[in-house]
Amino acid sequence: MEIERKWMVNGWPEGLALKEEFAMRQGYISVRPTVRIREEALTGGKTHYVLCFKSGGGLAREEIERDIDPELFNELETKIIGRPLIPKLRRSYLLPDGAVLEVNHVDEGQPTEFWYAEVEYPTVEAARSWQPAAVGLADYLSDEVTDQPGQSMGAYWEQTRG
């Protein structure tokens, strides 16, 4: 189960220490349910290839992720004919309360480029009770879109590549 909240943001947050950074490319074999492939290249580290299944929407969703080998990733990528994978740069920041803020810059340089941030939680109760103001991010995380239809990366895939 994946439990996370999502906000639309503008740029990287200020005053937070960078934990890690990944350059990613992801594409969708299916959007309903979500079946996604993603290449995750850790800055200064290894590259992982991931196959992901998600169902449901909003705050809590079923999620199954498995590492796959580069050959399978490449084979699956060729099945996504005529649709370039979505490039993302993700930076993770450790927050004062121990939570991790993940900020993503999507499709940099394209007319549709945008930024979003997510925080994952261990329980639905923890997610609902967490307040951005408690970690000094009230202004940065002011545009929450967690339960709004059309705010998933799958929806973005359909809008820009479908």
Rank of each mutant, 00 (worst) to 15 (best):
E21A: 14
V31C: 15
E20Q: 14
G11E: 00
L42D: 01
Y121K: 10
Q148Y: 06
F114Q: 02
W115E: 00
K54Y: 10
D139S: 09
P149A: 11
Q131I: 03
P13A: 01
L89K: 14
S30R: 14
R161T: 00
E2T: 08
G11H: 00
F114R: 08
G136A: 09
E14V: 04
N74P: 01
G57M: 07
K54C: 08
I80K: 04
N104H: 14
E102H: 15
I80Q: 03
V135T: 09
A127E: 08
R128H: 13
R32H: 10
L89V: 15
N10F: 01
R61N: 06
T146M: 13
V135A: 10
L101N: 11
R83W: 03
D147Q: 15
V145H: 04
W130F: 14
C52P: 02
E62I: 10
P84F: 05
I86G: 01
G45N: 09
E102R: 06
N10I: 00
L137W: 05
L42F: 03
L85M: 10
N104M: 07
P96G: 04
D67S: 11
R32D: 11
C52T: 15
A127V: 13
D97L: 13
G150H: 09
M1F: 09
G27D: 07
G162V: 06
T112N: 15
Q159A: 15
V100A: 03
R61D: 05
I3E: 05
F114D: 01
A134K: 12
P122T: 09
L141C: 05
T112V: 12
E158G: 00
E158A: 06
R38S: 02
A23T: 10
E108M: 07
D97I: 12
E113D: 12
H48L: 14
P13Q: 02
G162R: 01
N74M: 12
N104Y: 13
G98E: 06
V103E: 02
A99G: 08
I81M: 07
S92D: 13
M1D: 11
E144N: 05
Y93I: 03
E40I: 04
E125V: 14
H105R: 05
G150W: 08
D147F: 11
G154F: 11
R161F: 01
L141K: 05
L51W: 04
V35M: 10
I64S: 10
S129T: 15
R5V: 13
E75P: 00
G44L: 09
V119C: 06
E75S: 14
E39S: 10
F53C: 06
V35C: 06
T34I: 15
A17Q: 14
E118L: 09
Q131R: 15
G57H: 12
D147Y: 10
Y49P: 02
I64M: 11
V103Q: 02
E118C: 12
E65W: 04
W7Y: 08
L42A: 08
A134H: 10
Y140T: 03
R90M: 08
G15L: 03
L51F: 12
A60K: 15
